[in-house]
């Protein structure tokens, strides 16, 4: 019974959202606002269940990890933004998280992206075959793309040509990404239509 009601609710909300294809209307607005409200509530419970309770409350009560008072303090002073007279305290929390992000950013960018990607670009150019051609295109594409984003010097001469070829590679990448995104959205659309025809209307088995 619960499942049947759930399917009818889900089908109704799906149709409410699709009604936007005709034009903006109260049904769409209802579903949109309901979605935002429910999702906000969901994330509050999620944050409690998967962050605050297991990472802060339980270790402090069960394992006596009182060092966690520090992040709890920074978390609480973040809420001082509600009180204008002491809202300056929230800067300390922001500074703490930004500092942490920046520190992780330095090591993460170098070790996690720059070095592995440079390493993956240093491919062999030996022999006269299709693989060598592909490897050459990869190296050439990476370098020309980087040239396109190099603004420290006026782009003329070699830089101008490098930049022109770079934009060609970038356009191919954007086209491919766009194609991929469209396919992903279409597959979601097929999923929703399948749900309506199969789970709700039982037309498809």
């Amino acid at each position: 019974m619960g499942t049947t009601i759930g399917v009818w609710i889900a089908a109704g909300l799906t149709l409410f959202i699709y009604s936007f294809l005709y034009k903006d209307n109260p049904f769409y607005k209802f579903a949109e606002h309901l979605y935002v409200g429910i999702t906000a509530g969901y994330w509050i419970i999620y944050t409690w269940a998967y962050v605050i309770q297991p990472m802060l409350i339980d270790p402090m009560i069960k394992n006596k990890e009182f060092i966690l008072i520090i992040p709890a303090f920074f978390g609480i002073i973040m809420l001082t933004r509600w009180f204008p007279q002491i809202s300056w305290l929230s800067r300390w929390s922001i500074a703490f998280t930004v500092g942490m992000g920046a520190g992780l950013g330095v090591t993460g960018a170098i070790q996690g992206f720059i070095l592995p990607q440079v390493q993956a670009t240093l491919v062999p150019l030996t022999g006269f075959n299709f693989e060598t051609f592909n490897n050459f295109l990869i190296i050439f594409g990476v370098l020309t793309t980087l040239v396109y984003f190099y603004f420290s010097k006026e782009q003329k001469g070699v830089l101008r040509w490098g930049s022109k070829i770079g934009i060609t590679f970038i356009m191919v990448a954007f086209g491919a990404s766009f194609g991929y995104t469209v396919m992903a959205r279409i597959s979601l659309l097929i999923g929703r239509i399948y749900f309506l025809l199969s789970d709700w209307l039982k037309v498809l088995r």
């Binding site: 440079v118 295109l137 990869i138 050439f140 990476v142 793309t145 980087l146 590679f169 191919v172 491919a176």
Partner: peptide, 12 residues
């Protein structure tokens, strides 16, 4: 090939 090259350049 071309998509990955440009993506890598942008990522770098």
């Amino acid at each position: 090939v071309p998509q990955m090259a440009a993506k890598r350049g942008i990522g770098l």
